[in-house]
Design a protein around this nucleic acid. Structure first.
Lengths: 127, 127
DNA sequence: ATTTATATATAAGTTTCTTACATATACGTG
DNA sequence: CACGTATATGTAAGAAACTTATATATAAAT
């Protein structure tokens, strides 16, 4: 598994993305899918997951639906109408952020090469 | 600027990557370069930066060199020999993690399409 | 004279996550 | 039948990382 420190701040947008794509999911299912998608790289623990889900519900971003399957309780989470809008924003922000992160390991960080910035008014763009 | 939450855990690997590429840098310079590279998306605050640098020094990952320029003190940070090895590891981890993050917004999360997993033993790979 | 840029640093507080604990049913295996 | 593993949700204490506010000091620009 990836160094856990790297996860900070990523869990909420990942959960929102999953709910946005899948429509509705229950907690345990989310942990399994995150593990599957990331090929075991990201292990979303319950201690992290449930507080996030509860907070999202409290904020009105997600709503719940409780059903009993095989004598076991299962709580489905889905985005509310307003939650869908917020999720879209967060997902866009997240995607933009990942693009930004990628720049940090491009050759020369995608910056113009010093001394070659200017060729008769031509500007070198980001690689 | 990107939602600051997203930064958590990313600052240390970013700093290590910069030191790895640039050889030596001072604190203020690091904040400026991070801002430039990320086109203002990431603002590395001093309150975050200096504690990280001090901790890295304490761990023997970086060493310092203090000089006076224009009557102002300037402290250069560079990776130690052992620090270079650690930095390489962290950078590799970081890059792998960014690749993992990218999967979360691929169509179908890069997973096999349900019901089409198996074509006479052929396995669909990640997209 | 005042603001902005350069330069380093600490401290209080908040958020976020980890680790450990708590509870309960279902299923497979020796 | 006992035991472990999988399924399912949850709380609480603690650690780690970052934000915000504060402090200090010089140089350059307006």
């Amino acid at each position: 598994m990836a160094s856990n420190d790297l996860l900070k701040g990523m869990l909420k947008p990942i959960i929102l993305k999953l709910l946005f794509e899948k429509g509705k999911m229950y907690g345990y299912e989310i942990t399994q899918l995150v593990s599957e998608i990331s090929a075991g790289e990201i292990e979303l623990t319950f201690g992290a997951l449930y507080p996030i889900l509860h907070k999202l519900e409290q904020e009105g971003v997600v709503k719940t639906e409780s059903i009993v399957i095989n004598n076991r309780n299962r709580i489905y989470y889905s985005l509310t109408q307003t939650g869908k809008g917020k999720a879209k924003e967060k997902i866009a922000e997240f995607e933009e952020f990942v693009q930004t992160l990628k720049i940090f390991f491009k050759p020369n960080f995608g910056l113009k090469i010093s001394g070659l910035q200017n060729f008769g008014g031509l500007q070198l763009a980001r690689i």
